[in-house]
Design a protein around this nucleic acid. Structure first.
Lengths: 336, 336
DNA sequence: CTGAAAGCGCTTACAG
DNA sequence: CTGAAAGCGCTTACAG
């Protein structure tokens, strides 16, 4: 069996209270006893039992992370930031893959409660009212990363999707494009779907260009759906010179689709993506895309959570800046 | 405060022992009291405290996962399988990003010990002797996924890298290629580096083709290193008609490099990758590659661990089968 | 069928 | 400066 605090106390000839004190850097012992205790700890290879500690302190020093997917490049990058920040602050993370499934999400919330997590981070989920309610009833701090809940009070850190989509479209407009198609993600997605369409439309409107609904094709953010949606756009969107894709994966799909039909990017058609994940630099040609600071979002979300847990600091929602990462898929059109 | 077992006992007019029994489905109460207790549990929204439980049962129902990276497609896929299997068996996972850093790995091991994890999974790491020793001294079951430790006793689940590289090279040979270059990962990598080079060489030797060291260029498995290594190969490997890359990312880099120089794949040059991650289907043209069952590896590793924890079942190392996923980057050469 | 009590490994007043 | 004791929220013999 592993040594316990009692073993250390006995070996060092002190009480467990004293051992506990030196362990936690509390005052109340001579330098001499401190040294003795530390020596025994090292000799025995003693490590405190975090469960016991957590039980009495009501602090588990672990944070629950709810993710809609573990294998997508966008969520992975956020997880990386989250985990890094957690580790830097002596927290552990329990990761839960909800698979975007409502039931699983609820189940996980129960598990996390039982495990006494000190807080929760929810990564890019379209929260339902039921989930939202369960989250606030959790009575532990919660922060939403790359998502938010309209009308709710949960703090979030994300990019302004409408503004970002607007900027991406504007970028195309400024390069002289007018007949711009959009490869949208799921229409019902209240975070990454609808707002991005809105941004796209607003930019168009501002430039006085009116395009019908046939300039928008829907997918679900995946590569495959990108191929399909692009094929559709190529049918319906006449005279299209550029497309704005709601995800890099869809943009990659568009690239493939264009390639198969002998359409040269960017000479015949310009494409701008969204996310700036790793794949954006792997495509041929490398993808110009709207960059989201995923890693930083994760870091910041975790930091907010920790500051709240540790110092009771109020959590303030944050909109992080986005940028456009220029690469080689957008061409400037000179005919006005 | 959340209700405790005491609250439930009081409300239900029974002892905590009885509540504990119905909670754990142990015998020893009438159907009537069972119903009553369950009713109170529901009313109060009682959820057992896993820390307290873990403390007495010496079982935390959580597993520690050590990963060298969280954002690579290779590791993400394994994590997905690991997490899924864990959840199906009522376990949670604490994920640790070691960043391939020895110090961090050791730190994490301490944390995991304190948190009383029931077992550990180490994903694709090149374990050092120090780490290996600490792992076996952990006194909890450990399984290695997509890696192994030569001369050690830790059970693993992985693919046979030498055989897989052999098969990938053989595939090229059978298609008529002879002057085959290799884009290797880190030479010192005892799992994904050296063995793959060996497999490549063995296949060549079997076909009686002798190629100098100038047919091998080294990188570190990443996309960028793939571009560079490919550029090098193009200089040194004269008459090369095909290349075997030790990772899909490097293959994608090779594709880019070839594209920039106007070398057509597969017409001018054939390429086979390794891994079969998502990016293999996103490249242009889609990449023929050696497929590793990452998701399954993760699942299986976790299952072995759980079977050992739960039923004391002996953990047996497993070599999982690999396959070749044919896509469009390899062309058959008919001359001879 | 049921409960009182000890104990898991800690921390934290409290008393000296 | 130091220790005895209570308590965190459970489970598990033990006794009835």
């Amino acid at each position: 069996m592993n040594p316990t605090i009692k073993d250390v106390a006995r070996e060092a000839g002190v009480s467990v209270a004293t051992v506990s004190r030196v362990l936690n850097n509390l005052p109340g012992y001579t330098e001499e006893t401190r040294r003795r205790v530390l020596k025994v700890i090292k000799e025995l290879g003693y490590q405190p039992n975090a469960l016991a500690r957590g039980l009495v302190c009501k602090r588990s020093h672990t944070i629950g992370i709810l993710m809609p997917s573990l294998s997508s490049m966008v969520t992975s990058e956020m997880l990386k930031g989250i985990e890094r920040q957690a580790h830097n602050n002596e927290k552990s993370v329990i990761v839960c893959n909800t698979d975007n499934d409502g039931i699983r999400t609820l189940e996980y919330l129960d598990v996390l409660k039982e495990k006494q997590v000190d807080g929760i981070i929810v990564v890019s989920a379209n929260l339902t009212p039921v989930q939202y309610r369960k989250l606030v009833q959790f009575k532990k701090p919660v922060v939403l990363v790359s998502t938010c809940y309209a009308g709710g009070t949960l703090p979030y850190v994300k990019v302004d999707d409408e503004a970002a989509a607007y900027d991406a479209t504007l970028y195309l407009l400024k390069k002289g494009h007018r007949r711009i198609g959009m490869l949208s993600g799921t229409k019902e997605d209240r975070i990454a779907g609808f707002p991005r369409i809105q941004g796209y439309k607003r930019a168009l409107a501002e430039y006085g260009v009116t395009l019908g609904e046939e300039f928008i094709a829907y997918g679900d953010f995946t590569f495959r759906s990108g191929i399909k949606a692009m094929a559709q756009l190529l049918e319906t969107a006449s005279g299209m010179t550029a497309v704005f894709a709601a995800s890099d994966e869809m943009a990659a799909g568009a690239l493939v689709c264009a390639y198969k039909r002998g359409i040269k990017v960017p000479d015949d058609l310009s494409i701008i993506g969204y996310d700036n994940t790793q794949i954006a630099e792997m495509t041929i040609p490398p993808l110009t895309t709207l960059s989201q600071p995923f890693y930083h979002m994760g870091e910041l979300g975790m930091m907010m959570l920790i500051d709240n847990i540790e110092q009771g600091k109020k959590m303030e929602s944050r909109i992080l800046p986005h940028t456009i990462q220029e690469r080689e898929t957008v061409k400037e059109l000179f005919q006005k």
